[in-house]
Amino acid sequence: MSDITRSDVAHLARLARLAVTDDELDVFSGQLDAILDTVGRVSEIDDDVPPTSHVAPLTNVLRADEPEPSLDREAVLAGAPAAEEGRFRVPRILGEEP
């Protein structure tokens, strides 16, 4: 049924920002293939059935537009991998926003 190749796994890993190793490509392609064979059974069902995304019967749950306290910046930045000038420091950004 499904046929997940090494290059499919490599593509998915790239989309998901996972620097998978060569060995993992082998292991995962086999496992993902087996999993997708199993879960692919959902395609058996009728297309007419409406989808369910939320089970609780709720609508219009809204919050009043009233300010609440924010976090202490120094405490948050202390938990960051790197910070500078009150900001989070991150490696250089190569691509543009998609």
């Binding site: 890993a13 920002r17 993992e24 490696p91 691509g95």
Partner: peptide, 28 residues
């Protein structure tokens, strides 16, 4: 390294095999 590379390296090192499997299944 760029942000993309650091993100990918961190997630590769930081997540276990089952988490990676499920992330890839879900992405697919």
């Amino acid at each position: 390294r760029s942000t993309d590379e650091v993100m990918s390296a961190t997630r590769e090192a930081g997540f276990g095999a089952e988490v990676k499997r499920r992330i890839m299944i879900g992405t697919h």
